[in-house]
Amino acid sequence: MGYVKELRKVVGHRPLILPGAVAIILNEEDEVLLQLRGDGGGWGLPGGIMELGESLEETAAREVFEETGLTVEQLKLVGLFSGKDYYLKVANGDELYSVTAVYMTREVSGELLKDGVETMDLRYFPLHQLPGDVVPSYRNFIHTSLGDLLI
């Protein structure tokens, strides 16, 4: 996240518009992979903020690998989320409006790895039995993007 750190040196805590990407990874049973975040923020989808020179798809693939140890392929764009509902003020006072590309895939390889810092746990959950502490924006990404599977 070097780019954002450099921006923060200039703008401080003022709001930024930050593009990023997450991945909805489904297994054969239509269960979704969730990450228990190391920052105490609850369960969410693997993903993060775009670095300079990356495409949104590259951002999703890089972040998935960094946070889960999995390599993803065949990423399909299923949604783009932005606006006032995606304003965040994080614990250190930084403010941002996120613009998030949501991708979906069933094509993964590798072994799940949790680093104990950014990722405390990784588990697949049935779509109708998501944990109560899923970050609200991620819950919205899942329900909006996978509506057909939730019926």
Rank of each mutant, 00 (worst) to 15 (best):
L149D: 02
F125R: 00
L113Q: 13
E111T: 14
V78E: 03
V108P: 09
P126F: 10
G116P: 09
M104G: 06
D85I: 01
V99F: 07
P131L: 12
N140D: 09
D148H: 13
S98Q: 09
V134Y: 02
L75H: 05
E107W: 04
L96S: 15
N92E: 13
G116S: 08
E111G: 04
V99D: 08
V90Y: 13
Y86R: 00
Q74A: 14
S145N: 03
N140W: 01
K76T: 14
L127C: 13
D133N: 15
I142T: 02
H128N: 15
I142E: 00
P136Y: 04
H143F: 15
N92K: 07
L130H: 04
Q74P: 02
V78R: 01
Y97P: 10
G132Y: 10
V90M: 08
L113S: 14
G93Q: 11
Y103G: 02
L75G: 07
L127T: 12
P136W: 04
L127A: 13
L113E: 14
N92Q: 10
S145D: 03
D121V: 10
L96W: 05
F141Q: 00
V134G: 05
R123C: 09
L88C: 13
D148M: 06
L112I: 11
L127I: 11
L80R: 06
T105N: 02
F141P: 00
S145R: 00
T105C: 04
E107Y: 05
E111V: 14
G147F: 10
S145K: 00
M120A: 11
V99K: 07
S109H: 03
L149M: 08
I142G: 02
Y138P: 00
G110P: 10
L146G: 09
E107P: 01
L122W: 03
D115V: 05
V108Y: 09
Q74Y: 03
V117N: 04
V78S: 02
K114C: 14
E118I: 08
M104L: 15
M120E: 14
V99A: 14
G132A: 15
P126Y: 09
D121R: 07
E118Y: 13
L149S: 05
D133E: 12
V135W: 05
G116W: 03
G147E: 12
N140K: 09
V78H: 01
V117C: 02
P131N: 13
Y87A: 13
S137F: 02
L122K: 01
L113F: 15
Y103D: 00
V102C: 08
P131R: 08
P131Y: 13
V134W: 01
A91R: 10
A91P: 09
P136E: 04
L127P: 13
K76W: 03
T105Q: 01
Y138L: 00
F81L: 02
V117K: 04
Y138S: 05
H128Y: 13
G116Y: 05
N92P: 10
E111F: 10
P126C: 11
G110T: 11
T144E: 11
R106D: 09
E118Q: 10
G83M: 01
L77V: 11
P131Q: 11
V135I: 15
F125Q: 03
G132Q: 12
S145E: 01
L149H: 06
G132M: 09
Y86S: 01
H128D: 15
F81N: 00
G132N: 13
L149R: 05
Q129N: 15
P126T: 10
